[in-house]
Simulated scan of single mutants.
Amino acid sequence: MIRLNTDNLNVGYGEHLIVKNLNVEIPDKKITTIIGSNGCGKSTLLKAITRIISHRSGSIVLDGKDITKENTKVLAKKMAILPQTPDIINGLTVGELVSYGRFPYQKGFGRLSNRDIEVIDWALEVTGTSTFKYRSVDALSGGQRQRVWIAMALAQETEIIFLDEPTTYLDMAHQLEVLELLQRLNIEQDRTIIMVLHDLNQAARFADYIIALKDGEVVKAGNSEEVINRSVLKKVFHIDAEIGRDPRTNKPMCITYNLIKGEQKNEKDLDSISTIAHAVH
C-alpha cells in the first residue's frame, strides 16, 4: 500500500536544482532507507516531503492530498521528522523536550492534558529513556540523546517518521541500538520509517525498501537484493564493490570496495570540456 508519493518533484536552492523530476513511492508500514553520496539530494528530499522547505514544481501526495494544501497541525499528526542535527535548548529536561511532540494536539494556552502526559510517559518507556525524564538533555550521551529525540517524534503520535542520518556521530553500539529501536517500532507499532543512512550494510540489514539517489535522481529503488549490488553501487558511488552475504541476516553486504579512479577522472574531464564549451558559446 502506498500512502505517500512524489510526482515529478523539483526542489532547489537559488538557481541550483537539487531534486529533479523525482518520482518515488514510500511503502506503508515499512522501513525505507535513502542512500547516495553527499550532496545528491537525500536531506533535501526529506525536507521537501515534510514541508520544511518548499518545492519548485511537481507534487507531494499524502493520503491522496497535496501536502501544500494540508493544514499544518493536521499534517503534524500524520508525519514527524528528526533532523540531522536537532537544536537543543540549554537546560531543557528530557520530559520537557518530549512534551514538544504534543504541540499538534494542544489548544488554548498549551497546557498538557492527562492524555498528553500518558503519551509522553509511553514514548519515554518505549525508547528506554524514562529514567532520564528529569535530566538535562545536554547532559546525555549521544546515543541517549538520539533515543530522546525519537521519543519526541513518537509523542507526536504520527504513523510516519522521517529521520535524517539518525546514526551520525554515534559509536557502533549506539548506532545498532537506535536502528534496532526503529525496527522494533516498525514491527510492533506499524510505524512507517523513512531514513537517510550512509552505511550501506546498515541500509541492507534494516530496510525493507531502499532508494538510491544520484544528482537528485533515482538510480534504483527496491529491496536490498535489487539495490545493494555492484552495478547500482558503481553508478551511485563510483566504486567497484565486492558484495557478500551477512551471515546473520543473509542480506547482501559490501565487503570491500575500490574507487573507480579512471572513470572518475574521465567524468571530471567531460565536465571541464562541457564548461569550456559553454564559455565559448
Rank of each mutant, 00 (worst) to 15 (best):
I193A: 09
I193S: 11
I193Y: 09
I194T: 13
I194N: 06
M195A: 13
M195C: 13
V196T: 10
V196I: 15
L197I: 15
L197R: 09
L197P: 08
L197E: 12
H198L: 12
H198Y: 09
H198M: 10
H198E: 07
D199Q: 10
L200R: 08
N201D: 11
Q202D: 04
Q202L: 12
A203K: 08
A204L: 03
A204C: 07
F206L: 06
A207L: 11
A207Q: 11
A207R: 11
D208I: 08
D208R: 00
Y209M: 07
Y209S: 04
I210C: 08
I210Y: 11
I210V: 14
I210H: 11
I211C: 03
I211L: 03
A212H: 04
L213H: 09
K214I: 07
K214Q: 12
K214V: 06
D215N: 07
D215Y: 02
G216P: 04
E217V: 10
E217W: 00
E217Q: 12
V218C: 03
V219F: 05
K220N: 08
K220T: 12
K220F: 04
N223M: 01
S224P: 07
E225C: 05
E225H: 06
E225P: 00
E226M: 09
E226C: 08
I228V: 15
I228A: 09
I228D: 08
I228C: 07
I228F: 09
N229A: 08
R230C: 05
S231K: 11
V232H: 11
V232P: 05
L233H: 08
L233P: 02
K235G: 04
V236A: 05
V236T: 09
F237D: 14
F237Y: 15
F237M: 10
F237E: 12
H238N: 15
H238P: 06
H238V: 15
I239Y: 06
A241E: 06
E242N: 13
E242P: 02
I243K: 04
I243T: 08
I243E: 08
I243P: 02
R245T: 15
R248N: 10
T249Y: 00
T249Q: 04
T249A: 03
N250I: 06
N250M: 11
N250Y: 07
K251Y: 07
K251T: 12
P252E: 05
P252R: 00
M253S: 05
M253G: 04
M253W: 01
M253K: 10
T256M: 07
T256K: 08
N258S: 14
N258Y: 12
N258T: 15
I260S: 12
K261A: 14
K261F: 13
K261H: 15
K261T: 15
E263I: 13
E263L: 12
E263K: 11
E263G: 09
K265R: 13
N266F: 09
E267T: 08
E267N: 05
K268C: 01
D269M: 09
D269T: 11
D269E: 13
L270G: 02
L270V: 07
D271F: 02
D271A: 06
I273F: 01
I273N: 00
I273Q: 01
I273D: 00
S274Y: 00
T275Y: 00
T275W: 00
I276M: 02
I276P: 01
A277K: 03
A277I: 10
H278V: 07
A279W: 03
V280H: 06
V280S: 05
